[in-house]
Each structure stands twice: as structure tokens, then as C-alpha cells.
Design a protein around this nucleic acid. Structure first.
Length: 810
RNA sequence: GCUGGUGUGGCGGAACUGGCAUACGCGCCGGUCUCAAAAACCGGUUCUCGCAAGGGAUUGUGGGUUCGAUUCCCACCACCAGCACCA
């Protein structure tokens, strides 16, 4: 007599061992079934381990992968470690433990916790970005970019985090603070490695159109790339001695060129020292120096416009007018040409500036009918604009650009907000940049055969703070012969940012042990990724970089597609009600985490998996409820009992009610799963158990089998155990996903709500397909409904067969 | 300011294509079992008037379309997220 109790602890261990032994999750390169690649964003293996919020992001793709497996796909569902990064390094500084030791320990702990979830990861394909066999290829990609001129070194004013003592990418600066540590970012001039992502701006933008991604993420990327169409216009600036200097600006509003009443240079603009007149030099230089010292965000947060007049003037090419040249920090060197023409009548920022300094405001666009605001930034009709007067501003923009081009003083141009990617980090725990600096040959790539350039052992992990990484102190590592001339040369000591390894890891899972190529021969068939699941916090950074790497690898023939992630799904976060009554993100730093280990012990892995799905719509944030898991646990116990109570004593055939419940369940679960409405999948199964429970008849074998297969992606151990106990050989995951027949999902009688003047007044149970006349007949025989008619005849009868009857009376 | 999202019971949420609002779960109330408690199981639970039968109200607010609106349209409010002097 088998044990009737639901002993989840024993069951879960039994099947986890079985699946591992049977290698159920290993994806076979040669499998003839159609492939399906379902990818989770791989984690940074932090020391603090997993909380129930992390679980959520892994349970959904796992349930989806198991569903695809049951649908007959050859599923690849891998996992790995994004293990370079500052926490391990900071820990090394504090404790002296080598980051590698630390990282390995954290990975082991993280993996143990992940295994507790019973995801169907193919662990034979596990990768680790800090493994030299892996980062060899990260370095290889860098070298290919270097050879194509896409990686270059430049002295740049960069974002510098004084706490992390390293430069940051623009993408890593959030509201003027360091994304990692929250310190205020300052500006600093350093020679930096850059990746020319801007060369791909147009393709990164265009590629978004066809992706099955959340619109929100696509919009964020579009905004980040920030394409604007406009014109480059050459003014002529005059210095104090009458010398002429071309001064180029970018504008999206060439139609307002006649309204330019002054010009503004960014404080860093090279013409500032050239143009400033001697009497103003001290003042202007002080202003420019102060502006440059402040970080960019300080400039953008200032409410009051500031600036200085250089004393110089420029000539407007359309009318020969001389207008004053100012310096102001509201113009940024990093966008366009670092100089603008100012049209205060039609630009809010120029208007604010002109108001502060009393500069001329000249209207050249007549606003739309009836509007009188100044500044008017919309379209309108051009006025006081020479030959262009009377044109609509949209046409005028093109006309002016053409006019400028004909005279060689301008042309139409597209600008992007996107800037090149600052790729240098002055830290230890990252991929060494594989370049050698030779005094004779310059920047020489490390020969590919010598990759990887391994991280050397160091004694001190502290960043120097001087702008060099700790690697600079290892003389015998730094000093190498030049690969080209053999003379003495020095290694590059900067390392790559954490984003480097994650920009291409999804490729490597497909052929993780390939030694002679980034992508092995079996790899291509798995790609691209069919479903990518992860948090929306990577909407810009990681996803843009990964797309950039993919475009590049496509162009050099490594892969044969341009977009790596066909479909993207963003999970919501798990939040928790704080004592203040506010909802906060669940995180270690907030101290509000819920530990899954305890819940696995008390309720079981399957209950927790189910609750992670049931907690709310997957794309939205969800508030964790400590008692919520009790509900799904009770459901599992009821379902368990329902199956085993009739085990071996099945009904010959299902009653019509049970049959219809079964087909309805398959339909609901399948449709809701396809729509990613996982919370409602769980409730559909609960409703089913409630329904068959109240029917109080023994189920037939097929109904029970169907239920077990349907629940298996969500509660795999539970399903596998019941599958075995009901007399099947494992595994339930080798079964096919059941079908439903619509003929069974509709019942023979229907209950029709009866409304009178739109208000619910009763219900009628009739045969499906009953005619209007018969229904009206039934209404007349029903006194409870008739009394609401007040003895009157309906003025209008609306009858939707099998749906509703609405009677309109006056 | 711009862009995107969200507003439904005490709480998380459900509602296919315009057709019974509040499924499912939590919590709460009552019951069974127990010396007792927990667990488990059974029943109830939008608000409101009413002893009841029954009535009325209700999907952020105000309008509109419709026999009928959580769903479509217009205007507004609140909250959340991202971006923000990008010329």
C-alpha cells in the first residue's frame, strides 16, 4: 500500500536525482526535433545568495522551457555566471582573498540554491565569464574590433567614480551617480579605450522594428540612440584681430536660421580660447574651467542659465548678420558640434538664456492659428526669413538645408544621442585588454595564438586612483617584447567592463567547449535565442551592447543573423510591504528578503514554484505575501488526494461534465500559457480541482493523465511522482502536450442572464441554441422576471444566442 | 517637461472579440475535529438599506457612444518607472 500522504521532501529529492541520472535536461545537438532556445539572463553570483524575487525570474522561463519540451521541441535552456565585477574585487580588497577564490565559492553556493528550484538547465553547458577559456574569446572579439577600427584609444573627459576609482560608461551613470556604489560621478580626462558603437547607430535603431520585444524596451532603446534629422550649418566666427574661423553648428530647425540672435559654444569648445577677446579672457577662462570641473549632471541640473560673452561675433550665412558668440554650460561638447545657433523665439532653452542676459528675441515662425506663446517651439509659417518667408516650417527646413548645401555652407545631417562606449576600466577583476604598447610600433594587438591574456597574480587589489589599474604595478607582467619588432614594450593595463562578457555569452552556450572557434560547428543551429527572459533593468545597457556585438559578429561572418534575441520577456520584481506602508523592492540591502530555502523545507519546491507564478501577472511587480504559499500548497494536497483516491479504480469513461471540465482545462491552460498569463494558468487548475471535487465522482484515467501532464511544467516533482504512481514509467516529460476538442468545451444547456433596461433581473437555463421566441416564451412564464416588466411589452428585445437577453421597456 | 505603465472588495488579482463585474488565492467570520491550540476539512464573505423577501450603489474622476462599457472615444486626477538643457 503506497503512502497516501504528500511527502514533498522525499518526492522532490527522488526525482531530482532521477532526472540528473537520466540526463533528462541535456540538449542534444543532433536531435531531429525543431530547436528551441530559451535563455535566462545569467546572474552575477553574489555572496548573499538567492531570495524569492530571484526565484521568480527563473521559474517562469523554466516552466516555459518544460512546456516547449512537452510540445515536442528540442529545448536548450542553459545557465552560467557573469562573474567578473566589482563586489568580488571589493571583497578581495577588504579580506585579501583572491577574487577567483571568492567567485568560485559564490558560484557553488548560487548553484546549490538554483538546483533547489529544479530548473531544467543543461549544466553540461555551464559557462563562467572569468574562465580563461571563456574570456579568451571576449578578448578575441576585442581584437577583431580593433582590427576593424572599432576599438580605439582617445583622451576623453570621462565619467569618473571617485569611490570605485574607475571610469564609467555613460550607461553606468544614473542621475549623476555611479550605478554600482551611488557615489557622485565627476569629470576626469583620461586616455580611454572606446568602442565605436555609434557606427552601428542606424542599424541598432532599424533592427528594433521587427523584434518581438516589449514596446517599452524598444522605446527606451530608441530614445537612447536618439536619432534626429537636421542640418549642419557653417557660420564664420571672427576673432579680435579680424581672423576668420569656420564655426559649425547642428540644428534640427534650419527653418529658424533667420531668428538666430546669438551663438553659444560649449565651455570645452576648441574655439573658446581662440575667439575670446583679451578684455574678457580672464572671466571666460574662469567660467569655462569651472564648468569643465563640474560633472555633466551638475550642469544639467542647474535651474538658472549661466554663461559669458566671448567678445567675438559670427556671421550668419543666410543673411550676413553679425551676432555675438557666448559660452554657456547648457551647450554640451559631446553632442553635435558642441556649438549652437540660438533662436530664443523658438527654443525654450535659448529663450531662458536670452531672458537672463537681455539678448534679442526675434520671431521668424508664425505659430498655428490662435496661438501666441513665446517661445513658440512648434511648426508654423516662416516670417522675416528672406526668400523663405511664407513657407511652412516643415518644408522650410529642407529648403534651407538645400540652399546651404548649394552654397557650400551646410548640409542635411543626422545626429545621434548615442555616444561611443567607454570600454576601459582601471580595475583588476576584468578581462585584460589584449593590446601591447610599443614605443616604435604603437598599439599592437596581442597575436591571437597567445590568447587568452591571463590575469596575473597581484598582491594588492586596490585601484591606484591615479588612473591606472592594479595591473600597472606588476612590472614583470607589464613588460613584454613587442610582437611586431621584438623591442621592449608594455602591456595595456586597463581591463574590460563587466558588460563585455555578457555581450556575447548567449552564443557560447551553443558550443561551450569549442576550442578553435568562438562558435563551434554545432552551435549555429541553436541560434538565435528564441526567448530571452530577464528584468527590465537591462533594457538599455546589456541589451544594446549584446545587439551591437551581434551586429559586429554578423559582419565578420561569425554568426549568420543580426538580432540575437527574437523574443524578449521582462519579469516584474518581487516587492514587499514595508512598515511605512510603502511597497519596496525586495533586496538584501533593504533587509526585506524572504529566503526560499525555508519555504522549500516547509512547503516544498513545487509549492514555491507554483506560488511564484500565482503571485501576480508575470510582467508586473508583485507584492510578496507570506501566507500566499499556503493556498497553492493546499491546492496541491487536494489534487494529490483527488488523483490517488481513485487510483486504479478509474471510471470507465468520463461523465459529460467531467469530460467538458477536462477539455476546458486543456484549453485554458494552453491559451493562457501561450499568452504568458501564468498566474491565471494556476487559477485555472485550481478551478478544475474545485469543480471535479464538487462533482464527487471517480475520474477516468485519461482525465487524470491529462491533469498530471498539464501541471508538470509548474510542479515537476509532484507530476512525475503521480505519473509513476498511476502506473506509468517515467518520465512525464517525455509525453506530449494534450489537445482539446471545442465540441466538449461547450455544454448542452446554457444559463442566460436576463436584463431589463440593462439591469440583471434573473437567469434562464435553456438548451444551447435556443431561439429568441422560445426564450421570450420562458421569460413570460417566469414571474420573478415578469414583475420587473410592470406589465408592459418590451419596446426592444436584444437577444444574443447562448449569451444574454436584454429587454428594453419604457 | 517628454515617453511608457498602472488604477477593480480588507489584500494579491480575474473577466476571451462590448454581453452575468469581483473567478482563483490570501485574510476574516462561523462550523467540524480537539482537553486546548495548530494543522486539516466544510460553509460564508464587494459595499449599503432591510428581520426577511427584496432593493440600491459600485471597476480612479467627469462626460460620450451603445439595448448593454472594467473593455471603445474625449477630458481630467493620482501613483509608479525610464529619460531629461541632446540644439
Amino acid at each position: 500500500m503506497p503512502d497516501a500522504a504528500y511527502r514533498f521532501g522525499e518526492i522532490e529529492k527522488k526525482w531530482r536525482d532521477y532526472w540528473a541520472r537520466e540526463r533528462l535536461y541535456e540538449a542534444d545537438d543532433g536531435d531531429p526535433r525543431p530547436k528551441y532556445y530559451c535563455l535566462d539572463m545569467f546572474p552575477y553570483p553574489s555572496g548573499s545568495g538567492l531570495h524569492v524575487g530571484h526565484w521568480r525570474s527563473y521559474v517562469l522561463p523554466d516552466a516555459w522551457s518544460r512546456y516547449m519540451l512537452l510540445k515536442g521541441y528540442n529545448v536548450l535552456h542553459p545557465m552560467g555566471w557573469d562573474a567578473f565585477g566589482l563586489p568580488a574585487e571589493n571583497d578581495a580588497i577588504k579580506t585579501g582573498t583572491h577574487p577567483e577564490v571568492n567567485t568560485r565559492r559564490n558560484i557553488a553556493n548560487f548553484k546549490r540554491q538554483l538546483v533547489d528550484m529544479s530548473p531544467m538547465y543543461d549544466w553540461t553547458r555551464e559557462i563562467d565569464t572569468t574562465d580563461p577559456a571563456y574570456y579568451r574569446w571576449t578578448q578575441w572579439i576585442f581584437l577583431q574590433m580593433f582590427k576593424k577600427g572599432l576599438a580605439y584609444r582617445q583622451l576623453m573627459p570621462i565619467n569618473w567614480c571617485p569611490s570605485c576609482k574607475t571610469g564609467l560608461a555613460n550607461e553606468e551613470v544614473v542621475g549623476g551617480t555611479c550605478e554600482r556604489c551611488g557615489a557622485t560621478v565627476t569629470a576626469r580626462d583620461l586616455k580611454q579605450w572606446m568602442l565605436r558603437i555609434t557606427a552601428y547607430a542606424e542599424r541598432l535603431l532599424a533592427g528594433l522594428d521587427d523584434l518581438d520585444w516589449p514596446e517599452k524596451v524598444k522605446t527606451m532603446q530608441r530614445n537612447w540612440i536618439g536619432r534626429s534629422e537636421g542640418a549642419r550649418v557653417r557660420f564664420t566666427a571672427l576673432d579680435a584681430r579680424g581672423g576668420e574661423h569656420p564655426l559649425e553648428i547642428f540644428t534640427t530647425r534650419a527653418d529658424t536660421l533667420f531668428g538666430a540672435t546669438y551663438m553659444v559654444l560649449a565651455p570645452e569648445h576648441p574655439l573658446v580660447p581662440v575667439l575670446t577677446t583679451p578684455d574678457r579672457r580672464t572671466d571666460v577662462e574662469a567660467y569655462a574651467a569651472a564648468a569643465r570641473a563640474g560633472a555633466e549632471h551638475e550642469r544639467t541640473e542647474a535651474t538658472q542659465k549661466t554663461g559669458r560673452f566671448t567678445g567675438a561675433f559670427a556671421v550668419n550665412p543666410v543673411n550676413g548678420e553679425k551676432i555675438p558668440i557666448w559660452v554657456a554650460d547648457y551647450v554640451l561638447m559631446g553632442y553635435g558640434t558642441g556649438a549652437i545657433m540660438a533662436v530664443p523665439a523658438h527654443d525654450v532653452r535659448d529663450y531662458d538664456f536670452a531672458t537672463v542676459f537681455g539678448l534679442e528675441i526675434r520671431e521668424v515662425i508664425a505659430p498655428a492659428e490662435g496661438r501666441t506663446e513665446i517661445p513658440w517651439v512648434g511648426n508654423g509659417t516662416m516670417t522675416a526669413s528672406g526668400a523663405f518667408t511664407g513657407m511652412r516650417s516643415t518644408d522650410g527646413r529642407r529648403a534651407v538645408a538645400r540652399w546651404l548645401e548649394e552654397r557650400g555652407v551646410g548640409r542635411a545631417e543626422v545626429q545621434y544621442r548615442l555616444r561611443d562606449w567607454i570600454f576601459s576600466r582601471q580595475r583588476y577583476w576584468g578581462e585584460p585588454i589584449p593590446i601591447i604598447h610599443c614605443p616604435r610600433c604603437g598599439e599592437v594587438p596581442v597575436p591571437e595564438a597567445e590568447l587568452p591574456v591571463r590575469l596575473p597574480a597581484v598582491e594588492r587589489y586596490e585601484p591606484t586612483g591615479t588612473g591606472s589599474s592594479p595591473l600597472a604595478a606588476i612590472e614583470d607582467w607589464v613588460r613584454v617584447p613587442c610582437p611586431e619588432c621584438g623591442g621592449s614594450a608594455r602591456r595595456e593595463t586597463d581591463t574590460m567592463p563587466q558588460w563585455a562578457g555578457s555581450s556575447w555569452y548567449f552564443l557560447r552556450y551553443t558550443s561551450p567547449r569549442s576550442d578553435d572557434a568562438l562558435l563551434g560547428p554545432a552551435g549555429r543551429a541553436w541560434l538565435p535565442v528564441d526567448m530571452y527572459v530577464g528584468g527590465v533593468e537591462h533594457a538599455i545597457l546589456h541589451l544594446l551592447y549584446a545587439r551591437f556585438f551581434s551586429l559586429f559578429l554578423h559582419d565578420i561572418g561569425v554568426i549568420d543573423f543580426e538580432e540575437p534575441f527574437t523574443r524578449l520577456f521582462n519579469q516584474g520584481m518581487i516587492t514587499r510591504m514595508a512598515s511605512t506602508g510603502r511597497v519596496e523592492k525586495m533586496s538584501k540591502s533593504k533587509g526585506n528578503t524572504v529566503n526560499p530555502d525555508a519555504l522549500v523545507a516547509s512547503h516544498g519546491c513545487d509549492s514555491l514554484r507554483l506560488y511564484e507564478l500565482f503571485v501576480g501577472p508575470p510582467e508586473m511587480d508583485a507584492v510578496w505575501n507570506d501566507d500566499g504559499i499556503d493556498g497553492v500548497h493546499r491546492f496541491l494536497k487536494r489534487a494529490w488526494k483527488w488523483v490517488l483516491d481513485s487510483n486504479g479504480r478509474w471510471a470507465e469513461a468520463p461523465s459529460p461534465v467531467v469530460a467538458s471540465q477536462r477539455h476546458l482545462l486543456v484549453k485554458k491552460v494552453t491559451e493562457r500559457l501561450e499568452a504568458f498569463r501564468l498566474n491565471t494558468v494556476v487559477s485555472a487548475m485550481m478551478e478544475f480541482i474545485n469543480a471535479v471535487h464538487s462533482i464527487e465522482e471517480r475520474p477516468d484515467r485519461e482525465t487524470v493523465e491529462t491533469f498530471i501532464i498539464l501541471i508538470s511544467p509548474f510542479a515537476p516533482h509532484f507530476a512525475e511522482e503521480l505519473w509513476e504512481r498511476t502506473g506509468h514509467a517515467p518520465s512525464v516529460f517525455r509525453q506530449g502536450w494534450p489537445d482539446w476538442d471545442d465540441a466538449h468545451t461547450v455544454s448542452e444547456t446554457v444559463t442566460i442572464p436576463v436584463q431589463i433596461n440593462g439591469r440583471m433581473r434573473g437567469r434562464l437555463t435553456v438548451d444551447a441554441g435556443t431561439s429568441e421566441e422560445s426564450v421570450m416564451e420562458a421569460v413570460r412564464r417566469d414571474p420573478a422576471i415578469c414583475r420587473h416588466l410592470d406589465g408592459k411589452e418590451p419596446r426592444k428585445v436584444v437577444y444574443v444566442q447562448d449569451k444574454i437577453l436584454n429587454l428594453v421597456v419604457n
